[in-house]
Amino acid sequence: MTAPIESSPMESNAEEDYAEDREYVVVPEEAIQFLPPEWRDAFQSKVEDSRAILEAVDSDIKNLIRLVGAFQGMASLSYIHHRLSKADFNSTTEAILEHDMLTSAFVIAYVRLIDGGIGSGVSRKTLPPHLRKAHDEIIELRNKRFAHNAGHRSVDGKLDILFGDGRFDVSVTMQVGYYVRGANEWGELVTFLNGLMFDRLTKLLERLKDKTGCEWTFPSGPPPAWSDSR
């Protein structure tokens, strides 16, 4: 465990610099024993107090770890949807396979986030009612088309065998259905899930603040351009 030390900066000609420019120095717990006695006792007391506080909110911290575990999945889902929603559309085999690839990645990423795993998971009833049909469709796509070849209605094939002149001629006709640049509701789902994850984080940090009496902050900044799913 480390003990953060808040220290004042060097003197500055501008008073506002002195007030705003603050820094933290991290001292390894193993180094505390080498400090002067009055410093050592003060830091040891802080370490013990901090440890007691963290132990008291252990279950909330575990929830925070699970939630943070879902952030990477949320970022992947947002980026994949961005790529899918901007994909070129034409009738070439390459364009069809590109849509199929991106749709597969989106569906797998969505179900991985929804199911939870090391993340927090999202139940169907949490979703807005008008998005639940799209949710069900994605789950079916994952189960019957992309994760397993179980005969999804969007994929069909026909085999024709013709005989003549002493030989058999085999021909195959494949039909593959997909949403051009993804279904309209998929962007709404991504936007909703992004907001849900942020709300969960905010509420969890507020609960930690209430229980410990200390502020809990999380790194934040402007979202990347590709995170806008509209």
Rank of each mutant, 00 (worst) to 15 (best):
S78C: 02
I96D: 09
G116T: 04
P128S: 13
V111I: 14
R83D: 05
I114S: 11
A87G: 01
G73L: 05
G119W: 08
R112E: 14
H99N: 12
I118D: 15
I96R: 15
P129G: 09
R124M: 09
T126A: 15
G117K: 13
T92V: 01
M74W: 01
H130A: 09
D88L: 03
S78Y: 00
L102H: 09
A134Y: 02
I138V: 10
T92G: 07
G73P: 01
P129C: 05
A134N: 04
L131Q: 03
L127S: 11
K133M: 03
V111K: 15
F89P: 01
R83C: 06
I118Q: 13
H130E: 15
S85Y: 02
R132C: 02
T92P: 02
S123G: 13
S78W: 00
R83N: 05
P128D: 13
I138K: 05
H82K: 05
G73I: 00
D136M: 02
L102M: 11
H130M: 06
H99E: 13
F89M: 07
S85C: 04
E98R: 12
N90Y: 02
N90C: 03
T93G: 07
A95S: 15
K86V: 01
Y79T: 00
N90P: 01
G117M: 03
R132D: 03
S85G: 06
H135K: 04
T93D: 10
K125L: 12
D100H: 11
H82F: 08
G119F: 06
S120L: 11
E137D: 10
D115N: 13
M74E: 05
Y79W: 08
S76W: 00
K125N: 14
F106G: 08
L97M: 13
E98Y: 02
R83K: 11
T126V: 10
I118H: 14
T103F: 03
V122S: 09
V122P: 12
E94S: 09
G121F: 11
P128N: 07
D136I: 00
I108Y: 10
S120C: 11
E98H: 08
T126K: 15
T93R: 14
L131I: 06
Y110F: 12
S85N: 10
S123W: 05
G121Y: 04
H99C: 08
L102F: 07
S85E: 11
S76M: 03
T92N: 04
R83T: 02
E94M: 05
V122W: 12
V107G: 09
I138Q: 04
D115R: 14
P128G: 05
K125P: 01
T103R: 07
S104G: 13
K133R: 12
Y79S: 04
K133W: 01
T126L: 14
L113H: 05
E94Q: 13
L131W: 04
A105N: 14
I138E: 07
F89G: 03
T103I: 08
T103S: 15
T103C: 09
G121C: 04
K86P: 00
H99G: 06
S91F: 07
R112Q: 14
T103Y: 05
D136H: 02
R112A: 11
A75D: 12
V122G: 12
R83W: 00
E137P: 00
V107S: 15
L113Q: 10
S104H: 15
G121K: 11
P128T: 03
G119V: 04
L84T: 01
L77R: 04
